[in-house]
């Protein structure tokens, strides 16, 4: 790589950075009925937009039906064309938002929830989706589809206790490397000394 190439790349990087950080975060709290939790940089936010497969939106790599539940989804906000990553739904057991967005793939929606993150200059904080509806409808749906979707993905995983104690992929890792991820012997010693 020549000095000329490096300088050209630096110019591109600078322009990307200016674009990425030049936006001022708008206030989308007006009309929001989102529940609050005192999270970092939490802001109520209700807005309209289009549900998208994030990788498709960024790269043009676009499988059918927004990846059919295998990809991270987001919302391109009508007001400012910002791509908002949906990280969380309205359930309280470590649940993401893809199952709640997937029925609206490439559709126009209204959403209500919380923008999260402490950087004031970031135009698109990550989003906790609490309510969703087709754009312009009157009735909201709670973003709580994950639990039923997990049951369909994990037939035979019925049992006592929360899903995360029974999930096959979770238990496989813990059985192999322990709760600390450092090996079963370290786990055993730490638990004996601390619990």
């Amino acid at each position: 790589m020549t000095i000329k190439h490096i300088l050209q790349l630096a110019a591109v990087a600078s322009s990307v950075a200016v674009f990425a950080h030049g936006g001022v975060a708008e206030d989308f709290s007006n009309g929001s009925n989102a529940s609050t939790f005192g999270l970092s940089g939490e802001q109520k936010a209700t807005f309209s937009g289009k549900v998208v497969d994030i990788l498709c939106e960024l790269s043009g790599d676009c499988p059918e039906n927004c990846g059919d539940g295998k990809r991270n989804l987001g919302i391109v906000r009508d007001a400012d064309n910002a791509l908002v990553m949906v990280s969380k739904n309205a359930q309280f057991e470590f649940n993401g938002g893809t199952d709640d967005l997937l029925p609206y793939c490439n559709k126009a929606v209204d959403v209500d929830g919380l923008l999260i993150g402490e950087d004031p200059g970031v135009k698109a904080k990550v989003y906790m989706l609490q309510l969703i509806r087709h754009k312009g409808e009157t009735e909201w749906s709670k973003a709580e589809r994950w639990g039923e979707a997990w049951k369909k993905r994990n037939p035979g995983a019925d049992g006592e206790g929360p899903w995360y104690r029974r999930d096959r992929r979770v238990t496989k890792q813990i059985d192999k490397e322990g709760y600390l991820g450092l090996g079963l012997e370290i786990d055993k010693k730490w638990i004996a000394e601390n619990q």
Binding site: F37, L39, N72, M85, S87, K88, E93, F94, N95, G96, G97, T98, D99, V126, W146, Y164, D167, R169, V170, Q173, I174, Y179, L180, G181, L182
Partner: peptide
């Protein structure tokens, strides 16, 4: 949600990180 940034990484948070990954959180 679980505490400061130094506590929600590494071995301390490993099990929860597995739960969140399996739960579809990015």
């Amino acid at each position: 949600v679980m505490g400061g940034p130094d506590a929600v990484v590494g071995s301390a948070h490993h099990t929860c990180a597995l739960w969140c990954a399996a739960g579809g959180i990015p």
